[in-house]
């Protein structure tokens, strides 16, 4: 359907019974759609209210002033450092794989594409096991930040590849052919025609994947060698990154330290909000441009 246009039966006279039933159904559907959003909002509100000890804000402030804020800052920096390392590895490789799948001299696509798609569906804990074996044991990288970043890269790589591939597929073949007709080499066509046209789609998929990496805890739990007693917020230790730091809330709920973890939750959600908003904005703009005169299908 074209955007903003809806098909509906022509109505003559008062609504018959089936239309009333349709309206009831629509109302039920709307309630169902709203339900999860509202539930999560209420739960988050309750979490902030109960955990932060809003009734005694002085305790929280005191704790943050005592060095809690510094620890929190360190875990945020650790997370950013981890995610940027992960992105540096995963994004070029993922986009490269997608380019090869959709580029000139396409391989038999179904098998390779199916493989990537099913990798994207593999639970992320299992990549934690792979990271443990590959990076900790085989490459002797230890329980370090590099190990954690590479493991996260394994998780993110298929997601980036799938997103980039669908963005590249949306580039019409006519654009490529026009490039070749002007005498460009395949790499020139890829770099100057295909990539710019697909960039917003690739970018929005990548941002969403990075947002996921930012909040991912399960594979890190395995790779970082996490123990609650030995939780550390030292820079350069993957046990100190934000998602794992936040787990302190579960160990010692409703103490001053948990307030710090709670601020961590807020930071985590804020980052997520910014990243997803950015990705949605990019996608929205791209869709509008694709529907506009520039990418109009000549047929």
């Amino acid at each position: 359907m074209t955007r903003g246009e809806r098909l509906r039966p022509v109505s003559l006279g008062p609504p018959p019974r089936h239309q009333r039933r349709g309206r009831l159904f629509a109302a039920v559907c709307m309630a169902v759609t709203l339900l999860p959003v509202l539930v999560v909002a209420v739960l988050l509100g309750a979490l902030v209210q109960s955990g932060a000890g809003l009734d005694e804000p002085t305790v929280v402030l005191h704790h943050l002033a005592e060095g809690g804020a510094q620890q929190l800052l360190r875990s945020v920096v650790g997370s950013l450092w981890l995610v940027s390392m992960c992105a540096c590895v995963a994004v070029p490789l993922g986009v490269g794989a997608a380019l090869q799948l959709e580029g000139p001299r396409r391989p038999v696509r179904s098998a390779l594409a199916l493989n990537i798609a099913s990798l994207a569906g593999v639970p992320s804990v299992l990549f934690g096991l792979v990271g443990l074996e590959l990076f900790v044991r085989a490459l002797h990288l230890g329980h370090s930040m590099v190990t954690a970043a590479l493991t996260l890269a394994l998780v993110v790589l298929p997601i980036v590849a799938v997103a980039a591939r669908s963005a590249l597929r949306a580039v019409p073949d006519e654009l490529r052919e026009a490039g070749y007709a002007l005498g460009a080499t395949p790499w020139q066509v890829t770099r100057q025609v295909v990539l710019p046209a697909a960039l917003p789609g690739i970018l929005s998929g990548t941002i969403l994947a990075i947002a996921r990496a930012f909040g991912e805890a399960a594979p890190l739990l395995l790779v970082a060698g996490m123990t609650m007693s030995g939780s550390s917020t030292a820079l350069g230790d993957p046990r100190g990154v934000l998602p794992l730091h936040v787990l302190a809330l579960l160990v010692e709920p409703r103490t001053a330290a948990s307030a710090e973890a709670l601020v961590g939750v807020v930071v985590l959600l804020g980052t997520l909000l910014v990243l997803s908003g950015w990705a949605m904005h990019l996608r929205h703009r791209h869709e509008r441009r694709r529907d506009g005169p520039w990418f109009e299908d000549p047929r």
Binding site: V37, A211, P243
Partner: peptide, 28 residues
């Protein structure tokens, strides 16, 4: 309605699972 409800719903998919675990144990 769709314009604001769809992004709001999609946001739920992106909330880190650690946060969901916290919500489950501490609140829900």
């Amino acid at each position: 309605v769709r314009r604001w409800l769809k992004p709001a719903l999609e946001l739920l998919a992106g909330i880190p699972t650690v946060v969901y675990a916290l919500l489950a144990v501490l609140v829900a």
